[in-house]
Design a protein around this nucleic acid. Sequence first.
DNA 1: TCCCAGGCTCTCT
DNA 2: AGAGAGCATGGG
Length: 276
Amino acid sequence: MNDIIIENKKVRIKNAQNFDLAQTLDCGQAFRWREDENGVWRGIAGGRYIELYGDNGDIVIENSDENDFKEFWFDYFDLSRDYGKIIESFKGNKTLAAAAKAASGIRILRQEPWEALCSFIISQNNNIPRIKGIIDRLCESFGEKKEKAFAFPAAEVIAGLTPEDLAPIRSGFRAKYIIDAARRVSSGEIDLEALRDLSYDNAQSALLKIKGVGPKVADCALLYGCGHIEAFPKDVWIKRALTEFFGGEIPECAKNNAGIAQQYIFYYIREIQNNA
DNA sequence: TCCCAGGCTCTCT
DNA sequence: AGAGAGCATGGG
């Protein structure tokens, strides 16, 4: 584990490996982090608002302390996982190795399951800038204000709404899906926390009961929200990449950490596209 | 302007 | 089982 230095309302992760803030917070796995002109990132997760920035190879988290860090952010940033070792294991496939190298600062965020599920319901047939806007409006309209940001609204709150209530967030046809998900989660019909301990297949089946949740959205919720690192969400970009670079199949060396491979490939192919 | 976006549902073969 | 239209909205 990294050395952690606790200062006054400040946590410093010394010499953080495989942890680039821009890559991790803006790679399309989470939608609520923003960078200012000075390279400071601000966001809220688990109802906790923080600001963070890189400093000579360290990562500094402001507005946190020892307990807060140990209880929440250490897991959120997946700091117990050895990404260097995983990247090494991806050497078996040339393109995957290149993707891992390009995206080596990405960590898979262990987000709250409801936020991940709801966010990726909103993501369907949508583009990232607009997804961010819809989620911002959802939080501002229905989330609890915490210091300088609005928390993600609880499923219990959304469950009591109608599609008309959600009109201001302009989520279009997804509104009824958001509400269906919220109702199943808040009623206990689907226990998102329990999905962590189910097999991947059983956990995915449970999520597929929700209207508007298919294999891709379910896999995102499982990967980003429920710790299922073997989930491999296939969106349009990944399908393209699989066909173009991998003969349609996930490389064998990536099977155990398919979710991480997926995120590296997603980053890589979009970077190629942007530079083309 | 017009195509498309981290898909899914519904319908028709 | 598989293919294809339709879906709300707006970013680029």
